[in-house]
Computed example of a mutant assay.
Amino acid sequence: MRLLIAALCLLPLPLRADPVIDRVLDEVVSPGLAVFTTATGALEAAAVADCRATSEDLRAAWAGAMDAWFGIADLRFGPLEDGAQRQIIAYWPDNGGHRPKALARWLAGWQPGAEDAAAFRTQPVSVRGLYAMESMLYDPRFNTYTKSDAGCALVRLATADLSATAHEVATAWEEDFATVLRTAGDAGNARFLDAIEARQAVFTALLTSLQFDIVERIGLPLGTVETPRPTRAEGRLSGRSQRNLELSLAAHEALARALVPEGATLTGEDFERVRWMAARLDDPDFSGVADPTGRFRLEAVQTALTLLRTVANEELSAALGVTMGLNALDGD
């Protein structure tokens, strides 16, 4: 027995769990994944019950899944980035205008009775996920289908595919990547050599998401003073451009608060100010960017968000002992 105890004492002790990573996983990742998988499952069920674009239940279920997406959209590392899962779930912006063409091709080539979930998973991301569903529900070029034609088949395949993808991402997090984050620095962890690297991954994801709002979610519809581009706004078809921005900002704040270690001085005042400004845009689809007053309001939100990102970078990096790593927007 004494020899066994002595041998155990020679084994490396597990590293102390990082409270920052624990908070991120327990307060953001786990609940966000649970809500998203539930919402996409409800969307699939609604499509089975009534696949028509005129179904209020289907539209409500899609809106619920869209809302839930923002709870995990800031996780720009791990399972969402493996196998293009992010693009499959939420391919936007569609800068090349691929989605309408791809949807039209799929619908034109449909044959009754040929629905195949496995084959659908080989389709381009432009016909899959939340934004393809938005087109099928709200784009007048596609939303006049009946229960017996290609549009219905596409909606049912796309919602089942989305639900399956959500469950795959959640499973990968729960069964693998959460442990990889929690055990950063352990001898067998080749992904994160220490807790600082794990913190840096989350911190970089937050700053990248803030930049995405500044450059894409707000910047695309703003265009230029001479050429505003309201038709490039996210959620324009469904009239939820402003809602998406508000949900995105709320998600950023939740992640930032989870990152703040005990005793840090970071406050939520900057987040609260930007969210207050966004909530008062009164511009559901950002069509107001074509009007000087509407444009000024959205530009003001963009300016405030840019300042917020600078403040978050300075305060969080100092509190966490990290710097921003490379991200998907570098070089854009």
Rank of each mutant, 00 (worst) to 15 (best):
L255P: 09
R99L: 05
E27A: 12
D18W: 02
Y131M: 15
A47G: 09
I88G: 11
G129Y: 03
K101N: 07
G288M: 00
S163K: 10
V29S: 00
D57C: 05
L33P: 06
L326Y: 15
V28C: 04
A65C: 06
G185F: 02
R2A: 15
A118G: 12
D283R: 02
E44Q: 15
D213M: 10
P284Y: 05
N143S: 12
T231Y: 09
N189F: 03
L206D: 10
A312L: 15
V35C: 08
R121M: 13
E56W: 00
R105V: 07
R128H: 10
M136K: 04
L193P: 12
G83V: 09
L4I: 13
A172G: 14
D22S: 12
L10N: 05
L247W: 08
P140Y: 00
H252S: 09
V274H: 04
L206H: 09
A108G: 04
T267G: 14
T171Y: 13
G185A: 02
F192R: 07
R105H: 01
D57P: 04
E44M: 11
M133F: 04
L15Q: 13
R105G: 01
F70T: 01
L15M: 10
A290S: 09
V29D: 00
E234C: 00
A190S: 14
S317M: 03
S287Y: 00
L10P: 02
P79E: 05
A61W: 01
L11S: 03
N143T: 08
P221A: 03
G321V: 01
A304Q: 14
M133I: 06
A108K: 06
A60F: 02
W62H: 14
G96H: 04
A278R: 01
S248Q: 12
E299P: 07
D176H: 11
T122E: 13
N327D: 11
P100Y: 01
V28K: 03
L320N: 06
Q85F: 14
A6I: 06
A119F: 03
S209T: 15
R297Q: 08
E315L: 07
A264G: 15
T37G: 04
Q111A: 09
D149F: 06
C9L: 15
V155C: 00
L298I: 06
T37R: 11
A300L: 15
F36L: 11
A119Y: 01
D186V: 10
L25H: 09
T165V: 12
E27W: 07
V155G: 05
P284H: 01
I88E: 14
E226M: 11
L58H: 06
R128L: 12
N327R: 11
N313I: 06
R280P: 00
E168Q: 14
L58S: 00
T165C: 11
E27T: 06
W110P: 05
A250Y: 08
R2E: 15
F120T: 10
R273K: 13
W173N: 07
G219D: 01
P19G: 08
E175Y: 02
C9N: 13
G268Q: 11
L154M: 09
E299L: 13
W62Y: 08
A172S: 12
Q123V: 04
R280E: 03
L329D: 02
L3R: 11
Q242S: 07
L181K: 07
P93V: 06
G188S: 05
S148L: 07
A46E: 04
R16G: 12
L249Y: 08
E115Y: 08
L326Q: 14
S317Q: 07
